[in-house]
Simulated assay, not measured.
Amino acid sequence: MISVLLVGNGNVAAHLHTAFLNAPAINVTHVSSRDLEIIPQADITIIAVSDDAIAEVSSKIKNHFVVHTSGSVAMNGLKNTTRKGVFYMLQTFSKDKIVDFSEVPFCLESENENDYNLLEKLAKSIGKKMYAINSEQRKTIHLAAVFVNNFTNHLYKIGNDICKENNVPFEILQPLIKETASKIEELSPKKAQTGPAIRNDEKTIKNHLNLLDKKQQKIYKIFTKSIQNGDKL
């Protein structure tokens, strides 16, 4: 049995808490990051708070092994005086969307092999995909994730805006979104690229630009140029 203290109130903490409650080999306690006066001991203390709060929260915890869940903060960003580690899950977490942890990559880091083995055992209690990733690698993974997740989702938002402005249901684009995402399981993103930019279809590009407002035109032009120039802007 692994005892876990989970600190935090956000989406990551909530989803982890639910998952650990359903894991028979885990005994989990969940506390708020604002309530650190008296905290229980645990084999692993997981700090699932905002990046800016990691240093302050960790400095108040005396438990033997403390890890954070951030993709962009180095392991030494923890300010506890005991052992440190990272338990980063490469996934987007939303409040009302159930997460299948069996599909989530766990990026693990620790100061010694025994602690890594403990983190791996914890990850295996709810998931299947574990990777030994150091702080520098994790920063680059997080950066790549911003492009494929956060920026892509913003493009969905722009597509939704365009649909709304023209009385078209956004759901009509959902099969295309799903096919685009599934295609790169078989093809590289470069080989999967389609559309007027890669075809150098200037007539279609011009027609598209005429339908967009100035902010949308700027984004469209940046992406079109990047695609046509092989990412060399």
Results as ranks from 00 to 15, higher is better:
Met1Tyr: 09
Leu6Asp: 08
Gly8Ala: 06
Gly10Leu: 08
Asn11Cys: 10
Ala13Cys: 06
Ala14Asp: 11
Ala14Glu: 13
Ala19Arg: 00
Ala23Gly: 01
Pro24Cys: 03
Ala25Ser: 12
Ile26Trp: 04
Asn27Ser: 15
Thr29Glu: 09
Val31His: 13
Asp35Asn: 14
Asp35Leu: 07
Pro40Met: 02
Gln41Thr: 14
Ala42Ser: 10
Asp43Cys: 01
Ile54Thr: 01
Ala55Pro: 01
Ser58Pro: 13
Ser59Pro: 08
Ser59Arg: 14
Ile61Val: 11
His64Leu: 09
Thr69Trp: 14
Ser70Phe: 06
Val73Asn: 00
Met75Thr: 02
Asn76Asp: 15
Lys79Ile: 00
Lys79Met: 00
Lys79Phe: 03
Asn80Ile: 01
Gly85Gln: 02
Thr92Val: 04
Phe93Ala: 05
Cys107Gln: 02
Glu113Phe: 12
Asp115Gln: 05
Tyr116Arg: 03
Glu120Arg: 14
Glu120Trp: 02
Ala132Gly: 07
Ala132Ser: 13
Ala132Lys: 04
Ile133Cys: 08
Ser135Arg: 00
Glu136Val: 01
Lys139Ala: 10
Thr140Asp: 06
His142Gly: 02
His142Ile: 00
Asn149Asp: 05
Phe151Asn: 08
Asn153Gly: 05
His154Thr: 06
Asp161Ile: 14
Glu165Phe: 14
Asn166Leu: 05
Asn167Met: 07
Val168Asn: 10
Glu171Ser: 15
Ile172Glu: 12
Pro175Ser: 10
Leu176Arg: 07
Leu176Ala: 10
Lys178Arg: 15
Lys178Val: 07
Glu179Cys: 10
Thr180Phe: 11
Lys183Met: 09
Ser188Val: 03
Pro189Leu: 07
Lys191Cys: 10
Lys191Ala: 14
Gly195Tyr: 05
Pro196Arg: 03
Ile198Val: 11
Thr204Cys: 08
Ile205Ser: 04
Leu209Cys: 11
Lys214Asp: 13
Lys215Thr: 04
Lys215Phe: 07
Gln217Met: 04
Lys218Leu: 08
Ile219Asn: 09
Lys221Asp: 00
Lys221Glu: 01
Lys225His: 11
Ser226Phe: 10
Gln228Cys: 02
Asp231Arg: 15
Leu233Arg: 04
Leu233Asn: 14
Leu233Thr: 09
